[in-house]
Design a protein around this nucleic acid. Sequence first.
DNA 1: ATGCTATTTATTGTATACAGTAATTCCATC
DNA 2: GATGGAATTACTGTATACAATAAATAGCAT
Lengths: 242, 242
Amino acid sequence: MSDAQAALNRRPAEKEGEERHEAIYRAVSDAIVEQRLKPGARLREDALADVFGISRTGIRKILQRLALEQLVTLTPRRGASVTRPTAEEAKDVFDARQLIECGLMPDVACRIGASEAAELREMAHQERQALRSGKQSMAIRLSADFHVRLAQLSGNATLAEFVERLCSRSSLILAVYGHRGHLGCESHDHDDLIGYLEAGNGERAKAFMSRHLKAIAASLSMVEEGEALPDLSQVFRNYTSQ
Amino acid sequence: MSDAQAALNRRPAEKEGEERHEAIYRAVSDAIVEQRLKPGARLREDALADVFGISRTGIRKILQRLALEQLVTLTPRRGASVTRPTAEEAKDVFDARQLIECGLMPDVACRIGASEAAELREMAHQERQALRSGKQSMAIRLSADFHVRLAQLSGNATLAEFVERLCSRSSLILAVYGHRGHLGCESHDHDDLIGYLEAGNGERAKAFMSRHLKAIAASLSMVEEGEALPDLSQVFRNYTSQ
DNA sequence: ATGCTATTTATTGTATACAGTAATTCCATC
DNA sequence: GATGGAATTACTGTATACAATAAATAGCAT
C-alpha cells in the first residue's frame, strides 16, 4: 500500500526514467568491475528489481546488456550470474588487448596534448592513492578507467569501446586468476607510459604497453578451479587406490 | 553439415522458443547486412511482431541486441531504425579493421590447415558465383562471412567477435558511401590471400590484407548526405537563378 | 490563406499477470 | 537410513494491458 503510493508519488519522472536506467546499469557494472560482485554470484531479477525500485522489465534489459558485454552470463532458465571467465577467454582477452592497445599507442602519442597528459597523470595519481589507502575496489576500477581513457585519446571511438569491454572483462579475470593483493597494474607503469606519450615517442610507448600487459598476464595463475568437483575427485582417488 | 542435421533433428517443442528468437535475430541482421533493409529504414515494433508472430517483448529484445551491435539506432521515443553511419564512424570502422584483421594474419597463417584453406576457397568461390549471377545481397554477406571466418581461424574468439561486428557495420557503410554496383571486395583478392596464408607467409598476408582494406576504404565516396536537404538545395538553385 | 493551438492518432515505455520450468523439500518405500 | 518420486516452491519467459509522448491533423482566428 505505502509502497504503491510511494511508487505513484515519485512517478512523474518524464526523462528521469532513462537516466535512471543508465544509472542502474552503471551501478551494477561498477559493482562487477570493482569485484564487489564476485564471479559466479547470482543476480536474481526480483532482488535487483526490489533494490532499485523498478520492475523486472527494466532489470532484464540491463541484464541483457551486461550479458552482451559478457560481464554476466544468462543461462536459459536459470537466470543471470556474474560470469566466471575461462582460462581460454582470459588468454583471448589479454591477446586482444595486446593487439589493440599497443596498436593505438602511436596514434595516442600523436594526438596527446598537455591537458590530456595532465588528466592522465591525475588519474594515475588517484589510482596510486586509492591503492595506498587500501581502497582496492576503487583502485581496480581506476586502473581500468586509465586504460580506457588512453584508448579514447586515439580518436577512434570504435576501438575505444572495444578496449572498454576488454578492460571490464579483465577485472573479472583478475578476480578469478589474480593473486590476492596484487592488482593488475604496477603503480609507476602508468606514469612512465604518460612520459613516453607526451614525448611523442609512440613506438617506445607501444613497446612499454606491450611489456605492461605481458606482465599483468604473466602474473595470473592460470588454473581453472572447478566448483564442487574437487571433493569428488578426492573421493575417486581413495576408491582407485584400493 | 553435422550442425545443420543436428539442428534439424532435435525438435523438442519447448526449446523452439529460444531458437526462434535467434532465428528472428538472424533474419533481421541478415536483411540489414544484405542491404535489403537500407540505412534509415524504420523498424516498428508492431510491424516486426506481426511479421514474425511473436509479441513486442521479444522484438524489443532483438532490437536492443542489434542496437548494441550498432546495426540499428534506438532513439528514445521514436523507435528503431537501421543506422546510417557517419563518415567518422566509417573511418573508425575501417581503421579498426586495419588494425585487427591485419594483426591476426600471422596467427591465421600459423594455424591454417588444408581443410580450413579448402573451406575458405569454397567460400570465395560461392562469393564469386553470387556476384556473377547478380545476387548482390548474397555476395555482400558472403564477403563479410569470409572475413569473419578468417578471423575465427586465428583462434581468438574475442577478436573474431569484434571482426564480426566490424564487418556487419562495413556493409552498412558500403550501402551509404559505396558506389553503386561496386562491392567492397575485388573478386580475386580473397583467393590470393588464401594462397599467402596456406604458404604460411603471415607477413605477406598481412600486407596484402592491409592493401585490400585500404582499397575498399578508398573506394568509398565520403560525402555525408542530409535527408531532405538535397531537395531544398535544388529549390534554392532555381530561386537564385531568377 | 497562413499560422497557431487543440485534438486525435500512432507508437513506444513500463508494469504486471500468467504460464512454464528447474530446484527443493518432504514423504513413502525399500 | 538412504533413495526415488511426488508436491511445493521459486524463478524466469512471454504476452498483454495501460500510461505517456511525439507526430499528424483539423479547427479556429487573424
